[in-house]
Design a protein around this nucleic acid. Structure first.
Lengths: 188, 188
DNA sequence: ATGAAATCGTGACCGATGTCACAGGCTGTA
DNA sequence: TACAGCCTGTGACATCGGTCACGATTTCAT
């Protein structure tokens, strides 16, 4: 079972059936409904989630209650408050479902155990984290160099499905502008 | 030799003398002068650099020749155009020395060989990349949530030495504002 | 020492964006 | 049906930051 996860891992490192059985034994499936929190600000973050289906947002809420979206995640993405997860401290971010979501989750200690038991998985995660790091750098660059309009147009090109599933308010919170500013450049 | 590197690695995974001898055999030392490019936009990026001493900036130059600084790096930091390095494609960033710099460098194929020969090093790099990823996420959040002034003040607190070594123009290019805007909020 | 280049502050002007307010449309629920 | 809550667009206004221009000072290389 969990063919999704197996395909996902095997896109980077091949696994035998026995190996995958071992891998999957470390994961537990969880179901969440729209508006539920998978990670809650101020609480400990027990799990790293691999999303089987659904849609989530990773959010920071600032002092004036304004929301800033670090990332959306959907099928085949990994997501959690990594800072809190890896350091086992209280979350500063929240991970909230924008749709009903199924996820496979793993604790930090199981994560380490798994890497120890199967070095291939360490390679897999190294590759994954590296890609995440590169994506973050691209995002920083895009925040530094491009206008809101350019970022919006790129988002439309790269994730057209998102716009159908997420209200503009949230898109604005992801792009780093107010809802109104985003609305103004739409009609043009 | 290269005690820096050994201490750096051992802050995460302990090494025997033999292991470290093996590790260091994969690295080559290089010397650069101020204004030299360690990575040049448009060219292939052969190396990942561990900085022994000196100071560098990782820069993107946009269509209108404006510079945007992704990161400064100094002693004990790793630096290169990772996108270009890991995918072995032409660099879109430049890595330029702001001071004379010594660095230990490793090719991508040697990097993979080293990880294969010594799984500990895979763990080390996983840890390193993870921290880099977390730092990037913090930077994104700070770009989304804080004003130029706040970012400037945080930079002063976190890296006071930088301000002594780097002209304000470059600081501005790192913070994501014009030189003039940064100058205006200095006297406060 | 001398000239060229870099650094830095400052003023004027203007476009982009945040904030606040209002209105219409849509959806879900009692 | 009726209501409440979201989502979206739009206008008015103030502010922030970009751009251009100027000049003073410092740094650097010849």
């Amino acid at each position: 079972m969990y063919k999704n996860l197996r395909n996902h891992i095997e896109s980077i490192v091949p696994l035998t059936d026995e190996e995958y059985t071992l891998v999957s034994s470390y994961f537990k499936i969880k179901f969440f409904k729209k508006h539920q929190f998978m990670v809650t600000e101020g609480e400990l973050t027990s799990y790293n989630y691999y999303l089987v289906s659904g849609l989530t947002k990773l959010v920071y809420t600032d002092a004036s209650a304004k929301q800033h979206i670090l990332a959306f995640a959907m099928e085949d993405w990994w997501d959690t408050d990594y800072q809190a997860y890896f350091t086992q401290t209280k979350a500063t971010l929240s991970l909230e479902c924008l749709e009903d979501t199924q996820a496979l989750c793993i604790t930090l200690s199981d994560f380490h155990e798994l890497c120890g038991a199967l070095p291939k998985m360490e390679r897999f995660f190294l590759e994954k984290v590296t890609r995440g790091f590169l994506a973050s750098q691209r995002r920083i660059l895009s925040l530094l160099t491009t206008s809101v309009q350019e970022r919006y147009e790129q988002l439309i090109v790269q994730h057209p499905a998102l716009l159908q599933r997420v209200p503009k308010t949230q898109i604005a919170a992801y792009l780093g502008v107010s809802r109104e500013a985003l609305s103004r450049l739409g009609p043009k």
